[in-house]
Amino acid sequence: MTHAPQRPQDRPSLARYRFLIRQLVLRDFKTKYKRSVLGVLWSFLNPLLTMSIQYVVFSTLFRSDIPNFIIYLLSGIICFNFFSEATHLCLMSIVANASLIHKVYLPKYIYPFSRTLSSSINLLLSLAPLFLMLLLTRTPITLAILLLPFALLMLFCLSYGIGLLLATLMVFFRDTQFLWGVLSMLWMYLTPIFYPESIIPKNVLTVYKLNPLYHVLRFVRTVLMQGVSPEPKAYLYCLILCTAPLLLGLWIFRAKQDRFVLYV
């Protein structure tokens, strides 16, 4: 007689846990900068400094002939940094909250979700230097910029999806954290962050374009640098390639979440 046992408080709606999620995000945000002198300023400074270094390196070393390279580079760095930070935070989210998972019943998706939200705040903050650079480089800002949220939402879905997968895997195999360190670096080089996509050989281009980040970046850059909406196909690519990992992540996380407490 194996019935699906009913949980107490079986109404895991987002609204019900909104206050908790806000508190968790607030905690991440407060503790991140708690003992640093510059505090929140780091969210602005980090992408700016990374960009300066990479700009110097790549504009002198590679003699990149990408027009408006600063914007090209900065948009790439910001998006990838978010992806990298969110997935790394999600990866640890279940394991690091072991003490809570043992003591209180909460829907488990809350832990990676609040971490992805925390990273999103950093993403929004780091948009400030990007806009500053848009102004300084006199890149014309058009109405197309209103399409930016779509790309960021897709980026969020992708990161949360991958994060759910990693968090689940991490519970059962602690190797995941080291593996992901390497894999995410590989992913970075497979994404056109600081190089033009034209250097990719034609015969591998089809596989290369399976990278969801490629499509997100292309979308963001079209919107920012050309000031127009990408072609309809670009929306479709983003939508499919970003929500597929999300659905997969949700599915696997859901299937395994009841066993987390036995392993963390």
């Binding site: 007689m1 046992p5 949980r7 107490p8 408080q9 003591k103 209180v104 019943y105 009841d258 407490v261």
Partner: peptide, 8 residues
């Protein structure tokens, strides 16, 4: 408390 799920 809902922390552990019964197996039966």
């Amino acid at each position: 408390a809902g922390i552990l799920t019964p197996t039966s």
